[in-house]
Structures are given as C-alpha cells and as structure tokens.
Computed example of a mutant assay.
Amino acid sequence: MSTNRLFRFPKPAWLNNANTRTAGVYAAGALFSLGFFLFIDAASFSHSSRNGSEVHITFTDWIPGICSALGMLVINSIDKSRLSADSFSYSGNGVAWKARLVLFLGFALMAGGLAGSVTVLVLKYVVPNFPWPTLWFGVGNVTGNACIMLR
C-alpha cells in the first residue's frame, strides 16, 4: 500500500472509467438544471393567479440561489492541480493555499445559500403557518439549493 494515500481502502477500479466520469458529468448537469427548475417553478407559481395567496417570492428568496450558483461557479473555476501545488511550481509563491482559500470560500457560499434558503423557508413560510400551496415557495427554494449544492 502506498504511504501517501489519504484513505486506507483503495479506490474502486470502475471510478477510473471514462464512462463513469461521463455519467457523473451528466448527473451533475441534471441536478443543476433540476435545482433551477424547481426554484423557477415556485417563483412562477407565486405570481400566478391560481396561487390563492397574497405572499409572493421576492428578492430575498432569490439571494440563497444566487449564493449557491456563485459558489458553484467558484468551485468549478479552480484548477485541481493548483490545490496540491508546491510553492514554487507556478508563478508566485503560495499558490496552493490561495487556491484552497478560494475553494473554501466557494463551499462557504454554497453552504450559506442552503442555510439561507432554510432560513427563508422557516421565517417566511413555516412560522406564519401558511398552507401547502404557499409553503411550496419555500420548499422549492430549499430543494433547488440542495440540488445545486449536491451537483
């Protein structure tokens, strides 16, 4: 066993398959699009005449989704080879810790977006005790952000 491994158990061979990576890319895209679809569905239903409620989705409901999308963009924009780079392998010193800091900020944005959507759900829809069609606005926001974060 190699001494520089992080985990004790070896990685399964099927994870190194090109078809597995392709399926993972498609699954991530499906989760991302499903997350935005759920939120846009809730937003469009909140402004429909069939809503039957005076409560609508406002900009405060959009902020967690924006944070999650920005966090996803930040995480995907980092080159993975820079995370384990030596300090003199690229131009400038300390590239690895800078890349790790930016990666941490991206994950913090995504976690903050999910926590913000749960907060909006609880404070805006659950505490006033709205019935189900109105409660869907908050539930759609949370499930959309969870799909974006899981992608």
Results as ranks from 00 to 15, higher is better:
M1N: 11
S2V: 01
T3M: 07
T3W: 00
R5P: 01
R5Y: 10
L6S: 15
F7V: 00
F7T: 11
F7L: 02
F9C: 12
F9E: 09
P10K: 10
P10L: 05
P10I: 04
K11Q: 10
P12R: 05
P12D: 09
A13G: 13
L15I: 07
N17S: 11
A18F: 05
N19F: 03
T20H: 11
R21H: 06
T22D: 09
T22E: 13
A23V: 04
G24Q: 07
V25K: 08
A28C: 04
A30S: 15
A30K: 15
F32G: 03
F32E: 09
G35D: 05
L38G: 02
L38K: 01
F39H: 00
I40E: 09
I40Y: 09
D41C: 06
D41M: 10
A42S: 05
A43E: 07
A43M: 13
F45V: 05
H47F: 09
S48Y: 11
S48K: 11
S48H: 10
S48D: 00
R50L: 13
G52L: 05
S53W: 10
S53V: 05
S53K: 00
E54T: 09
H56F: 04
I57W: 01
I57E: 00
T58E: 02
F59D: 04
D61Q: 07
I63K: 04
P64I: 12
G65W: 00
I66V: 12
C67H: 03
C67N: 10
S68N: 07
M72K: 13
V74Y: 05
I75V: 15
I75P: 09
I78V: 09
D79P: 08
K80S: 13
K80R: 11
K80G: 08
S81V: 14
S81L: 14
R82Q: 09
S87W: 12
S89W: 15
Y90P: 02
Y90V: 02
S91V: 03
S91N: 03
G92S: 06
N93Y: 15
V95Q: 10
A96H: 08
A96W: 07
W97V: 07
A99N: 07
R100Q: 14
L101T: 13
L101Y: 13
L101D: 07
V102N: 15
L103W: 13
F104Q: 10
F104D: 09
F104L: 15
L105C: 11
G106T: 04
F107C: 08
L109F: 10
M110Y: 04
A111H: 11
A111Y: 07
G112R: 03
G113P: 08
L114V: 14
L114Y: 11
G116L: 06
G116N: 05
S117P: 03
S117Y: 05
T119A: 12
V120W: 01
V120M: 01
L121C: 14
V122T: 12
L123H: 14
K124M: 07
K124F: 09
Y125Q: 03
V127H: 08
F130M: 05
F130E: 03
P131Y: 06
P131S: 14
W132M: 01
T134N: 01
L135E: 03
G138W: 00
G140D: 03
G140Y: 02
N141A: 06
N141G: 03
T143R: 01
G144M: 10
N145Y: 05
N145I: 08
M149L: 14
M149S: 12
L150A: 07
R151S: 00
R151K: 00
